[in-house]
Design a protein around this nucleic acid. Structure first.
Length: 680
RNA sequence: GGCGGGGUAGCUCAGAUGGUUAGAGCGUCGGAUUCAUAACCCGGAGGUCACGGGUUCGAUUCCCGUCCCCGCUACCA
């Protein structure tokens, strides 16, 4: 697009059911903030919008677990999350929430408009219904026995023990978590967005943006190739935004329908406060809309939300969706449930005032093209060698010398040498380069450019050696310090998007006003005669013991996880001896083993059961190789009804014990027995 | 298995519509220096650009195949 008149920048609406960690910051919020701070410094008109997403089933479950209300849950986390963002200098123009009245109304209007235009298909499906509680049950509200691993506490969407993805109808003996009663199937109507019919338009949109990052564009192509499916935009639930139609009692908008509309309703809220027209930011072709998100949201922001916007008809579509990949922590995936994370509120307690250090490290290592790793060792190194050694040190050298030679007053500029001119020329070019990188979402490159300014300063001082020259030529030193001070002044501008707290400190130290990006690089930013403050360190070293303590904390978490990670599965209901006697459990010997073609999990075994050779399939390919299984004695259920999987009939089931860490062990007799031995 | 992303220096990562010596930071080794938080500055070493084929005058960059890692998706009696 041509030069936009204004920018609407959104950062993902975070789900209000937990605090936030460095992964959120690295993947989405710091990049968004850097982009926005740069645009503002460059004089652009920007609206920076985000908030919490407060609807959906997981929040109701969390409330139930904690014995409180969904509203109490979202109130609590809205507060915590908002504070974390403020603490880290994420400069939203508004940080709101989807529980606001204006959001409910905006979402409903949006829905009605699509409805009136005939965009939805009304579809009747059979869903589980709890007659005692008088409500339909979301998948998560149904528990039962997992058909795969027979864990009795599997949920309707997933068994957390074996990881299988389930549908509620797969569960054996389903029960409602509300009343414990057995749910019944009941017909219900919901409204579907026919993404399948809209595919051509969506494809046209996506394909008009080949400049999107490879991970984003590729992910979209993956979805499009598989073919889009109609998607329900309403749910039978009582927590959320009411479906604004007659005969829609007990139905709410699907959380992924209302959440992105939150960007619009929050813009409205902000515009009202700020005296702006929200339409300028959402309905004007000259506005550039950019969504910052993590890679888990790509499909919603690049396909579903644009489809909704197209259907509604009055809005612009995103010009770019610069999604980052994920940030790992010490070689392991960040996980809230396993407490494998650096929580922002904890970080600030342990590293008070060091927001910029974390911002810097997360940016320097931002997962722009692939998943990246955050390690405390690297955190220390980046702090000590780059922020302290290069950035802080240069500023300190300059301010110390200025105070020493001139009592803190910026000296006059004399005759410039060729080297001075060359340095100032380089200085003049860097801000433009950094800005260019930022506009292209190359933030790591931009950050390196920022540090390059400090490097330029260090080199300038090393080459001009004012501490030596002062002994022979005092006049010359004035010019040298003048030039060095100009570099610090430019630094205070170009570091601002990345290190806002440091920028503020530096400006104070130099007694410099807040200046725009276009001023950066000029050779008279800080005027002769300006009094600067005493040198004060911008960053301090981080000692080995401090990062070791953090690593130990994580190791402790790991130990805790191993201890607590698995709970012993509760006992199943009592059975009689006759029930047991129905099972025919035997020992057999594996004669042949081979992987099932086209399957990641299944192995195919030929087993000698004493009577004959039978084929058994088992989903253990991720734990055992076929070779190591051959010749082993195994325990299996011999009279289980045959079942065909991937075209091959399986006659029985091999028994395994699952250890705490999820690894599997064969159940074997303690000395070799004959094939066909029965177990009783 | 399908679809997508990735496999480049000890580490973390850039890059190339195919073209003379493949880059950065950190680490390491050596030098210089003392204004500065033992910081800074200069220089060296270190890569068969996952592997095997193909197209080409020439490929690490394009094509095909294989292997490995990550995500989504299917299979898990």
């Amino acid at each position: 697009m041509n030069k936009p008149k204004r920018y609407t920048v959104t950062a993902a609406l975070i789900y209000a059911n937990g605090p936030i960690h460095i992964g959120h910051l690295a993947g989405c919020y710091v990049p968004a903030d850097v982009y926005v701070r740069y645009l503002r410094a460059a004089g652009e008109d920007v609206a920076f919008i985000s908030g919490t997403d407060e609807h959906g089933v997981p929040i109701t479950i969390k409330a139930k677990k904690e014995g409180t209300t969904p509203q109490a849950v979202v109130d609590k986390y809205y507060g915590i999350i908002k504070k974390s963002f403020e603490d880290f200098g994420i400069s939203f123009d508004i940080y709101s929430r989807t529980s606001k009245e204006i959001h409910h109304k905006t979402s409903q209007d949006f829905f009605v408009k699509m409805y009136d235009k005939g965009y939805f298909d009304e579809v009747t499906t059979e869903q589980y219904y709890d007659e005692t509680a008088g409500q339909f049950l979301a998948d998560r509200y149904i528990v039962g026995e997992c058909p795969n691993c027979h864990n009795p506490g599997a949920y309707g969407d997933q068994c957390e023990k074996c990881g299988s993805t389930l549908s509620p109808t797969d569960l054996i003996n389903p029960r409602s978590t509300f009343s414990g009663s057995k749910p019944v199937m009941k017909a219900t109507n919901n409204w579907y967005l026919p993404l399948d019919r809209m595919q051509p338009e969506i494809e046209k949109y996506v394909n008009s943006h080949p400049e999107w990052k490879a991970n984003v564009f590729g992910q979209c192509q993956s979805w499009l190739k598989q073919g889009l499916q109609p998607r329900a935009m309403t749910r039978d639930l009582d927590w959320g935004i009411k479906v604004p139609l007659k005969d829609a009692e007990g139905k709410v908008l699907y959380v992924w329908f209302d959440a992105p509309i939150g960007y619009i309703s929050m813009t409205k809220e902000w515009a009202e406060q700020a005296g702006k027209r929200w339409e300028d930011y959402w309905c004007d072709e000259d506005t550039k809309l950019v969504h910052f998100i993590g890679k888990d949201n790509i499909v919603f922001h690049c396909i579903i939300f644009p489809a909704m916007l197209m259907a509604e008809g009055s809005f612009i579509l995103a010009d770019n969706v610069p999604a980052n990949e994920f940030m790992n922590l010490e070689n392991d995936k960040i996980s809230t449930s396993r407490n494998w994370a650096v929580w922002l509120h904890e970080y600030l307690e342990e590293f008070p005032g060091k927001q910029d250090v974390l911002r810097y490290v997360l940016l320097a290592n931002a997962p722009e093209t692939k998943d990246n790793d955050f390690t405390w060792k690297d955190f220390q190194t980046k702090n000590n060698s780059e922020l302290v050694g290069i950035f802080g040190n240069f500023v300190n050298r300059t301010t110390v010398l200025t105070n020493k030679y001139y009592e803190g007053v910026v000296p006059e500029k004399g005759e410039l040498t060729d080297f001075d001119k060359q340095t100032l020329e380089t200085l003049a070019q860097l801000p433009g380069q950094i800005g260019e990188s930022l506009r292209n979402y190359k933030q790591r490159e931009a950050l390196a450019g920022m540090l390059e300014v400090a490097r330029l300063g260090n080199k300038y001082l090393a080459d001009t050696e004012p501490w030596k020259v002062i002994k022979q030529d005092e006049e010359r030193v004035k010019t040298i310090m003048y030039v060095a001070l100009q570099i610090t002044a430019t630094l205070s501008i170009v570091c601002e998007p990345f290190l806002p707290f440091t920028a503020e400190k530096l400006r104070k130290q130099l007694n410099l006003e807040h200046k725009g990006w276009s001023e950066a690089g000029k050779d008279d930013l800080i005027k002769t005669g300006t009094k600067i403050e005493e040198a004060e360190l911008l960053f301090e070293k981080i000692e080995d013991s401090v990062v070791e303590a953090q690593v130990n904390k994580l190791l402790e978490t790991k130990r805790q996880n191993e201890l607590e990670g698995k709970e012993v599965t509760p006992l199943k209901p009592e059975i009689t001896f006759d029930d047991f006697a129905k099972l025919d459990i035997r020992i057999g010997k594996i004669l042949e083993a081979e992987p099932m073609p086209k399957s990641k999990k299944l192995l195919k075994f030929l087993i000698d059961d004493g009577l004959e050779k039978r084929t058994i399939l088992s989903g253990i390919a991720e734990h055992f190789s076929p070779e190591e299984m051959i010749g082993k004695q195994v325990t299996f259920i011999a009279n289980l009804a045959p079942r065909k999987m991937m075209g091959v009939e399986s006659n029985g089931m091999i028994l395994m014990a699952e250890d705490k860490d999820g690894s599997l062990s064969l159940l074997q007799p303690h000395k070799e027995v004959w094939s066909g031995a029965t177990v009783s």
